[in-house]
Amino acid sequence: MKLDLRKLKLRKVNETLQSIDQKRNNKSYTILNPEGNHAICAGLTDDIDVTVKGHVGYYCGGMNQNANITVEGNVGTGVAENMMSGKIHVKGNASQSAGATAHGGFLVIDGDASSRCGISMKGIDIVVKGSVGHMSAFMAQSGNLVVCGDAGEALGDSLYETDIYIRGRVKSLGADCIEKKMDNKHLKKLDKLLKKAKLDKLKSKDFKRYGSARKLYNFKIDNVSNY
């Protein structure tokens, strides 16, 4: 089913995708002419495939549950923000705060993601095939952030329990973020994520793992300079 945003209002398109008639068993949808509109595919709850043909604005696929969304273009701020489950695949670049606060699901970005990728992520798995900007995984709580390129300044600042895997160069680490040993358990987990993102050719041993030093969990006067 084709939904053309030049002919239909965004609200109508989102309402259609949010209230799928299960009896008709139509699982595949295409959105035409997104033209940078915000909140495309926000709040989907059904197990459907949606392809967006073009560039989108802010909060694409926000709060997604179950849906499999592919964007054939770039995405604006906050793609997959607060996603619960399902998958979002961005074939272009992503702007800032990709996957922000997301609890679950899988976000793949073929290009680069800019600053604050995975900010406050709470369980989502994010794979960025390019590089990420500054303050990525800021206050990230759980889940995995995999970056095949480089990371900008202050990676993982004030990090909780997210695992970060970076293949390239890290410009600097944020407060309480440290490089950690990559053991078999982590190599296996990373292999699985790379495979899921169809990056089988990359070797997990070429990545470095970063995580929390757990020194900022509770206030200690000795750490005051880190706050």
Binding site: E35, G36, N37, H38, G54, H55, V56, G57, Y58, G73, N74, G76, G92, N93, S95, Q96, S114
Partner: peptide, 19 residues
């Protein structure tokens, strides 16, 4: 500020787009 401002420009879908 946002891509939607330039969505009407000729040939924008073939442009090199970056932040």
């Amino acid at each position: 500020s946002e891509f939607q401002a330039m969505a009407h420009l000729p040939g924008v879908n073939m442009a090199k787009i970056f932040e």
